[in-house]
Amino acid sequence: MKKIHIVALVAIAAIIAVLISMMGDLSTYETIASARQKQGQPVTVIAKLDRTVPNPIQYDPARNANFTAFYVVDSLGNKAKVEYHFEKPFDMEKSERIVLKGTMKGDIFEITRKDGILIKCPSKYKDDPKAAQNNLSRN
């Protein structure tokens, strides 16, 4: 067997080992209900702000600039309170979708990493024609 073949075999073995271990670390998108079943495990949930709550985002930087609480609802209508231990992300009010990465602790979804939130705004790169049209007819 040639050296190059040995290298190839080693590389393939390494790739398979790495992939298997990485696949194990992948999480899946959960709903709020299924996240509740996985208490304390890192999960990813796609939800949006629960606008039926009068003040869906609570952030009082004068008291604590490192704590934001907000209410979300997922596409199945399940609701949860989220605690995010960082400043309120810019534009959060206008978000139409929020990707949350964290763990469910009881009824509260807790996020302890800064990048545990990804905010999707309707007009991020302004390619949303609906937002533009509203903007046009508003003033």
Binding site: L26, S27, Y29, P42, R113
Partner: peptide, 10 residues
């Protein structure tokens, strides 16, 4: 499927 990289992306 619904796979995603966990919370420690980096």
């Amino acid at each position: 499927t619904t796979f995603t990289v966990g919370s420690e992306v980096e």
